[in-house]
């Protein structure tokens, strides 16, 4: 294990405390509430769905970075996961595009 990809320098970030986790959960709850409110605001037109998608991405990122502690862990984990996410999104966008179903 002298030199392996997993031995990249650790990022010396302070690990969150239980208090931090409660704060993060509170933020997640607030975003969810905002999402629900937003889904009733039909007057936003095209902006509504865009905002909803942005909020979902934010929640996704918060859970992955803090709760799944990707932010504090080896970079190789993030890469493996991101490959999956990007792969899924790009492949299925193409599939749906060929059906003209987007």
């Amino acid at each position: 294990m002298a030199e392996t990809v997993v031995h990249e320098p650790h990022q010396h970030r302070k690990h969150p405390t239980p208090r931090d986790y409660w704060v993060i959960a509170f933020i997640l709850g607030v975003i969810t509430a905002a999402e629900v409110a937003l889904s009733y605001m039909d007057f936003l037109g095209f902006g509504g769905p865009v905002l909803l998608i942005i909020m979902a991405i934010a929640k996704f990122a918060i859970v992955a970075l803090w709760f799944m502690h990707l932010r504090f862990d080896l970079a190789v984990y993030s890469r493996l996961f991101v490959v999956g996410i990007i792969g899924a999104i790009s492949m299925f966008l193409v599939v749906l595009a060929t059906f003209a179903a987007l």
């Binding site: 493996l80 996961f81 899924a88 999104i89 299925f92």
Partner: peptide, 16 residues
């Protein structure tokens, strides 16, 4: 954890 993360990457495609 490496194995778990690649598995989760794979699950992304599944739910995708």
């Amino acid at each position: 954890k490496t194995a778990m993360w690649v598995f989760l990457g794979s699950e992304c495609i599944f739910f995708g």
